[in-house]
């Protein structure tokens, strides 16, 4: 099967809850029943328009880097591609199996040991017993937690949790690899090993999308890059070219281009 990801004018809006009243069904009923006379001030739920018409086509062998300032919509776009968030408008179609590395250190049970956490997640993903042992051993070797691998995760430092989490999610399978800025955590030694591991995954992946603030990392993994600003793709092209333009416009006002390449 040819893997592909296609986004056609994808918009994403999400609510920001700032008050418990916004999560009250009684408040909602009162507002509806009185046509907003009661509690109309409480309904001011703020909506963030995080993606504003994203068009993107990725085919086999696409290696796409994503750059942009904080809050430009990078993570939201990756989460949408990965199927964690769903577009509010527009179309998203994905062919192929996705493996995404979006958040690290979350989704571990603090009371369980590293080994138990790994076993749990692998079983949920449907690994059978023999395969599970192999994969678990491989993760154990990679994370280098030594005796901590058999201790509860609550005893881990945050760096150790990240290592375990990274080892675990990179052991899952998928031919579409979506990675969001995860190489920043951990010590230098681990970062080195982590990027080697990503490289290995990238070799087997059909499509890779990688968000990062590091030119070196982007150049290592990606051919092309897109630059996101204000929830839109504002420029695209070879990594170096885009990164140069991005650095030149560090103040956050990208040149407006109406001919952004969207197929990779």
């Amino acid at each position: 099967m040819r893997s592909s990801i296609e986004l056609a004018s994808v918009h994403l809006r999400y609510p920001v809850i700032t008050s418990g009243k916004q999560q009250s069904i009684l408040g909602q009923v009162a507002r509806n029943a009185t046509f907003g006379l009661i509690g109309k001030n409480n309904s001011g739920l703020r909506i963030v328009h995080a993606l504003r018409g994203i068009n993107l086509k990725l085919g086999p062998k696409a290696r796409l880097g994503v750059i942009g300032r904080n809050g430009s919509g990078k993570s939201t776009m990756l989460k949408t591609m990965a199927g964690v968030l769903h577009p509010s408008a527009g179309q998203l179609s994905v062919r192929g199996k996705i493996n995404s590395i979006l958040t690290l250190g979350a989704g571990l049970d603090p009371e369980k040991t590293g080994r138990e956490n790994v076993a749990m997640i692998l079983s949920l993903f449907g690994f059978d017993r023999s395969k599970m042992t192999n994969v678990s051993d491989e993760i154990e070797e990679f994370v280098e937690l030594d005796e901590f691998f058999d201790m509860p995760v609550r005893t881990y430092s945050s760096g150790m949790s990240v290592r375990l989490s990274f080892g675990l999610v990179t052991a899952l399978e998928g031919d579409i690899l979506i990675i969001d800025e995860v190489l920043g955590a951990g010590d230098a030694h681990f970062m080195q090993r982590a990027s080697e591991r990503i490289e290995k995954l990238a070799e087997n992946a059909s499509i890779m999308v990688f968000a990062s603030h590091s030119r070196a990392d982007l150049k290592r993994f990606c051919k092309d890059a897109i630059w996101m600003h204000g929830g839109k793709i504002v420029a695209s092209g070879p990594v170096d070219e885009i990164f140069d333009a991005y650095e030149l416009n560090g103040d956050g006002v990208p040149p407006v281009s109406d001919k952004v390449k969207i197929e990779f």
């Binding site: 990965a82 964690v84 995404s100 989704g107 949920l124 993903f125």
Partner: peptide, 12 residues
Amino acid sequence: TFVSTYRLPVSL
């Protein structure tokens, strides 16, 4: 945390 970390069905 589970729902936002892993690509598993939430109906699980």
